[in-house]
Design a protein around this nucleic acid. Sequence first.
DNA 1: TTGAAAGCGCTAACAA
DNA 2: TTGTTAGCGCTTTCAA
Lengths: 336, 336
Amino acid sequence: MKKKTTIYDVARESGVSLATVSRVINGSSVVKAKTKEKVLAVIKELDFKPNEVARGLATSKTTTIAIVFPQSLFAHVKDMIGGIGDTGRHLDYNINMYTTDDIGDDDTVSDVTERIIKSRVDGVILFNNEHIDQMIEGIDRYHLPIVVIGKQISNETMGSIYIDVKNAAKELIMPYIEKGKTDILYVSPKQNLIKNDDVIEGIQEAYHENGLVFDENNIISSTSSYEFNLATFEKYFKNKKHDVIFCGYDKDGVAVIQSAIENGIDIPGEMDVVGMLNTSYAVMCRPQLSSLNVPIYDMGALAVRLLTKFLQGEAIESKEIAVRYMFIERESSHQN
Amino acid sequence: MKKKTTIYDVARESGVSLATVSRVINGSSVVKAKTKEKVLAVIKELDFKPNEVARGLATSKTTTIAIVFPQSLFAHVKDMIGGIGDTGRHLDYNINMYTTDDIGDDDTVSDVTERIIKSRVDGVILFNNEHIDQMIEGIDRYHLPIVVIGKQISNETMGSIYIDVKNAAKELIMPYIEKGKTDILYVSPKQNLIKNDDVIEGIQEAYHENGLVFDENNIISSTSSYEFNLATFEKYFKNKKHDVIFCGYDKDGVAVIQSAIENGIDIPGEMDVVGMLNTSYAVMCRPQLSSLNVPIYDMGALAVRLLTKFLQGEAIESKEIAVRYMFIERESSHQN
DNA sequence: TTGAAAGCGCTAACAA
DNA sequence: TTGTTAGCGCTTTCAA
């Protein structure tokens, strides 16, 4: 295997110095057009690909950002990855991905932090999840810029992309309450794109503004197993019913619909069901599930963009970016 | 922001030379226990994190592997990412991820190749997709080890993890044909984990071994849009019916079931429907979709493991690894 | 507009 | 068992 061609080879072949070649590949404007042309020709001829590792060492910048996927990953990471990957490529950043698996939680978190520091990435994208604070703290100590997805937070070197689920929940719930449909159940999911506490706050406010109070017993948690949840709901709906079942995640919404039907409950005749994230699940289900649509791809793209603003010292209008959302009413509810 | 502590700082503080510190952090066995202890103490005290970029430059190795996600990504990438990320961490490799989006296909492929080369990763994991050959060729020119997921292929520096879909398809189809149910439709998906041609070959063999021939008109392609496919199928099943609908992807299976029901076709009474990959979709659907289960997480893990074997010059028993699969019969079929 | 040379933080002979 | 020293391939002053 012949050695890779280096900047030295290019310099020699084109009869200029290292420095000039460096200027050319970095687009410096001071190089004479003719020189530049010649160098570029040689670069092409020798198929020279500048070594980013060497550059990284010289500049103390890797133009790489790390992204940490937590274990409890929601569906449609696919879109998130698309947004992150595409934007990274367009802005000329590499993406280093890390996962935190379920075995040995704590150790994994510090292990990943350690690896991130050693790899000398320029910044980090994190997802809201149960270990988020620990993760943030571990990374913040090294003054690495951070962008958090799914939780509103910011400081000098930290920003976030989030969904204003508090308001979304409030807007969703409000019409029901105003119509006297006040028996609402919230199904709280294991999922990182929304902050559960915010959803609950939103619900509470909707009740409060109507002089009512939301009964916190009307919150049940789902697990990450569809079949387990289904079994739970099937039992639950044997002798219960509510005006509205508001699910933090579509998958739970589908389970609710199916188990309600199983128990002879008509949807949306007797009970409305609403999901969140507007995944494929929603349209595949019968009756089709109403859901809150959220621009997942864009959240990934925005996260990368925001992070690069930190990295390049660009002006940042807002460090906490709320993405737009839109309620899509389908067959499982009739809010209006 | 104070400068990061380097190996020099550690050497000075512990009164030894650079080389010794280097030996300690690399676990060399020649260092005297006492020296090692002292150095380790200083490392801890100064919170020294070796700079992988500098190490990469010195060793011409980055201990990083690249993974390229194509645009038409199947669901449950989630699991794949888990397998890749976790295994990368356990084997001490960083994962660099790239996406190839839909805009400007060709350019993107060469763009990504270029970035991969510049970043000096040690090896690459690729997914089977329409541009796979172009991608492989582009990377192979630089003698980077490659592992392909979803397609059986290998050479000196290339291996693969795949599902033997040819046999899977054959095994699935065979019992039907033997029972005289020879009117089978194959729904060919846009999805990278299986090789369509192999599925078709498997079907053909099943027919062939029974002295029959599979009519290639009985292949229809689905798109990546569930709703579009649903509309297509709804029209299709208005005046058609088959013994079996064999879908390369669960999502299509669900669409088939739903549109068949819409048209009054009883499943599995009049028609069997079978999917592939055994995603959540299969269990969420009514009747539940029979499907071919495949260890997606493991495929990711195996890919990383195989690649590191190439990288570390380890013995490789087999460069083409077929993963186990298992047919899970649910409500949408009655093969037996 | 170009070149010379120091330095980025580490590894790996080679010597001691 | 430890230290010295020459790179690894680039960027970036500083001079010319």
